[in-house]
Simulated assay, not measured.
Amino acid sequence: MDWLQIVVLSIVQGLTEFLPVSSSAHLILVPVFSDWGDQGLAFDVALHLGSLTAVVLYFRHELVTMTRSWGISVAGRGTDDDARLAWWVLLATIPVALAGLTFHDTIETAMRSPLILAGGLIVFGILLGYADWRHRGSRSEYSMSWVDVLWIGIAQALALIPGTSRSGITMTAALLLGLNREASARFSFLLSIPVIVLAAGLEIVNLVEASIPVDAGDMVLGALVSGLSAYLCIHYFLAFIRRLGMQPFVVYRLLLGVALLWLFG
């Protein structure tokens, strides 16, 4: 790959991994407007590792506190808010992990249609808009019950449908449950950590089994650009929604969905 392809794909992945706009929809559009071929599985692994590094670095203080409290909880020496939040992240990951193992092949083959992408963008975009407009709660991520977390986890499993957006659907569910915008986004970003770990792990297994050659330079550059763009995305997104909410992203999703229908319908 040339440097421009690496940079463009890395920025697209880094931004859309955390914005509620669907990374799959954007990655399918890149080859439409270019003559680039498939970037390959090894490069996908690098992009995921870059995004993972970004979210871990951004929430490093929270993660250290959560991990310490979780360890104390496991040892039976009490459970505080940080320990519960760590347990909630693990609990909410179970539905998407089970759904991914069960429906992975079907999703990869039968559900990659641009029309399905467009439908996911539009339908779940409208739902996000409704949740942000109608359910402006005041709860923090520390106030959730296990039932709340289970609902968010089930919603996260819907992100396997192309066009849904993992961050978008988890934020939608959290808003509907009464969490405020920033809490919804923060919990969604924390949820991305085990999901990206699982996705990257599966890709690495496939990469090893297929004995695919790796271009280390491309992977390092892709990981760096993806990580930097993802880190900046998380930082500015949290500040953005505090002032303007989710509606600009809803409008963008609807326009992108219509564009896909026009291009591929």
Score class of each variant (00 low, 15 high):
138 S>I: 08
143 S>I: 00
48 H>Y: 04
262 W>C: 12
152 I>N: 04
220 V>F: 15
225 V>A: 10
96 V>I: 15
11 I>T: 09
188 S>F: 10
164 T>Y: 05
94 I>N: 01
232 L>R: 01
3 W>Y: 15
201 G>L: 11
121 L>C: 02
264 F>N: 10
139 R>F: 03
185 A>P: 00
207 L>C: 12
114 P>H: 13
43 F>T: 09
104 H>T: 05
239 A>G: 14
70 W>I: 07
140 S>E: 13
138 S>L: 03
64 V>G: 08
40 G>K: 09
44 D>V: 06
12 V>L: 12
130 Y>E: 04
7 V>S: 13
194 P>E: 09
121 L>P: 03
238 L>G: 00
254 L>Y: 12
25 A>T: 06
129 G>D: 02
247 Q>C: 00
63 L>R: 09
26 H>M: 07
32 V>H: 14
20 P>V: 03
180 N>H: 01
229 S>E: 08
138 S>G: 15
249 F>E: 02
138 S>C: 00
215 D>I: 10
112 R>S: 05
58 Y>K: 04
48 H>W: 04
130 Y>R: 09
108 E>H: 06
242 R>P: 02
254 L>D: 10
113 S>V: 05
189 F>L: 01
242 R>W: 05
137 G>F: 07
253 R>T: 07
44 D>W: 02
180 N>Y: 03
255 L>S: 12
176 L>D: 08
131 A>W: 04
136 R>I: 01
50 G>N: 07
46 A>W: 04
28 I>R: 14
160 L>P: 03
202 L>G: 07
36 W>L: 05
49 L>P: 02
238 L>T: 02
208 V>E: 05
168 G>Y: 01
225 V>P: 08
13 Q>I: 04
192 S>C: 06
230 A>W: 05
116 I>G: 06
117 L>I: 15
92 A>T: 11
256 L>I: 13
261 L>T: 09
110 A>M: 11
193 I>K: 10
127 L>N: 01
229 S>F: 08
232 L>C: 10
265 G>Q: 06
248 P>N: 03
78 G>F: 10
169 I>S: 07
7 V>Y: 09
262 W>K: 08
143 S>A: 14
38 D>P: 11
261 L>Q: 09
93 T>I: 10
135 H>I: 03
183 A>S: 15
33 F>L: 11
95 P>W: 07
177 L>V: 08
96 V>M: 02
264 F>A: 07
174 A>V: 07
229 S>K: 00
